[in-house]
Amino acid sequence: MNRLTPFQKIVSYGLLTVFTLVFLVPFLWVFLTSIKADRDTFTLPPKLFPVAMTVEEYDTAQKAGELSPIVATYGFAPTAEHYRRAFVEFPFLPYLRNTVIIVFGTTIGVLLSCAAGAYAFACLRWPDRGWIFGLVIATMLLPFQVTLIPQFMLFRSLGWVNTSLPLIVPFFFGAPFYLFLLRQFFVTLPRDLFEAARIDGAGELRILTQIVIPLSKPALITVALFAAMMAWNDFFGPLIYLSSENQKTLAVGLQGMVSEYMSEWGLLMAAGTVMIVPIVILFFIAQRYFIEGITMTGMKG
């Protein structure tokens, strides 16, 4: 974290403002579509804001004094219809429940197995670590589509099809991406710390839990966040392994709204918005720790 000169500050804020405009467009569109009536979704020229009435209707309503305050003031009328449907017709809460179970299971599994694994691959010296680590990374290189069928057979023989176990249990046995990510953080930790702790008689588990983990909070939070987010948005896994309506997750439900023939755009975007909000909140809470992290790793300086 650096202090900036006034000039640097101006440049930074300027850049950030431009980026923000660019990055916000998707959200604005998702959100605005979610509060638009269907017939306003696709018009030429495109309307960014929802206008739930035609010009004639507007005039009539205005003459009759029936124009709602929002329309009168802002010239557009949002509709909550899609949100109502997202909660009433779309079984949002059961889907949420199924999703949350998978997200919690996955995240805990990833944190436990990858922290331990990354510690072994980054901080401990043992004869086979190089090639085994290489093998783990190599498994990321094969497109999952081809291992899907053999994996499915495996989980079927374990009797796990139609349960969320195939989506959770493997994460308790490592996940290459997160393992690699954590390992890259752990290798930057000073070795002297471990040696000193070992001389003081600390076991490896204690070094992991009391030195490595506290020092790697930003990395662990990043990993937890990514794992949670990927499980939250994962579509293919639940699609293949879960086969009843009441096991569906949010992402699967969301995908179900898009079709080749007709798509429920408003509903899709309303459900999408509702699906994004919890992650945004989670992220907003978590990102604080990236800043806090500095005071903890400051001991290096």
Binding site: F23, M229, N233, F235, G272, I276, I279, F283
Partner: peptide
């Protein structure tokens, strides 16, 4: 930070 991260969490369908 939240703003710039947000597009990454929009479901790929959307």
């Amino acid at each position: 930070r939240t703003l710039f991260y947000m597009p990454s969490i929009v479901p790929i369908v959307a």
